[in-house]
């Protein structure tokens, strides 16, 4: 069995474009997750009873079912409520929902790991509860959220492969289509594997650098 280098180079441009889509979808999803997670975390921690429960249940449910089910839900659900997104944005929405649930859980446990003392000192000075969390506790907890959040980003990148079922032209979808078109298997699989390893690997290195900068 020899490696078909001709096909390898021939398909590379399309795979690289697909890699770009993978990165775009993942970055957007994680970006939105990071924007939505802090307010949701605060609600989860200190809002009155009904709101707290709603967020808590949402987080537990999303974390407790396979991402494919969430993707199916979004795929069928968005048009049903009148939002005709294309595959790409449907994918972003689905990954954001998954990402937010995990991000809220990460932030919540980071803040709770700080212990009571900080919170009480701030309250004793006269900070209202929400300002205590937002301005003091969150900042401190930030450092503790970095490692699990990076892990989460890697998970989102891997989950983006699942978007192939809704025809988002990311790495897995394009690779798969090529395999079925051309029956070239090994070379394309190698490309897919290497691309994912590079993307996830680069991410881990970047985040390690970021972590050491912030410590």
């Amino acid at each position: 069995m020899s490696f078909d280098w001709l096909s390898f180079w021939e398909f590379l441009p399309r795979m690289l474009q697909a890699a770009l889509v993978t990165i775009q979808v993942s970055v957007l999803a994680v970006g939105f997750s990071c924007l939505l997670a802090p307010p949701l975390t605060i609600i989860r921690l200190i809002a009155p009873w009904p709101a707290r429960v709603v967020v808590g249940v949402f987080v537990e449910i999303v974390r407790g079912i396979p991402p494919l089910v969430i993707i199916a839900f979004v795929y069928f659900g968005l048009p049903a409520i009148g939002l005709m997104f294309d595959g790409f944005w449907t994918g972003v929405v689905a990954l954001t929902i998954v990402g937010v649930a995990y991000a809220v859980e990460i932030m919540r446990s980071a803040i709770e790991s700080l212990g009571r003392g900080q919170r009480e000192a701030a309250l004793a000075l006269g900070f209202p509860v929400w300002r205590t969390y937002l301005e003091l506790l969150f900042l401190q907890a930030l450092k503790r959220t970095l490692p699990p959040l990076t892990n989460e980003l890697a998970n989102v990148i891997k989950a983006s492969a699942l978007l192939s079922v809704i025809s988002v032209h990311e790495i897995t979808q394009v690779g798969n289509a090529l395999i079925f078109e051309t029956f070239v298997v090994a070379e394309i699989m190698v490309q897919m594997t290497i691309l994912y390893l590079i993307i996830v690997g680069a991410l881990s290195t970047l985040s390690r650098k970021l972590e050491s900068r912030l410590v």
């Binding site: 900080q118 004793a124 000075l125 006269g126 900070f127 209202p128 900042l139």
Partner: peptide
């Protein structure tokens, strides 16, 4: 909140904000 601004408390475990300097700890509130 208003009550706590008029009453100060010192804790057994100090509970300073570790990510702020001494000066910032005092000026934060």
């Amino acid at each position: 909140v208003m009550l706590r601004r008029r009453v100060g408390m010192v804790f057994q475990q100090f509970n300073l904000f570790p990510h702020l300097s001494v000066l910032d700890n005092i000026t934060a509130a």
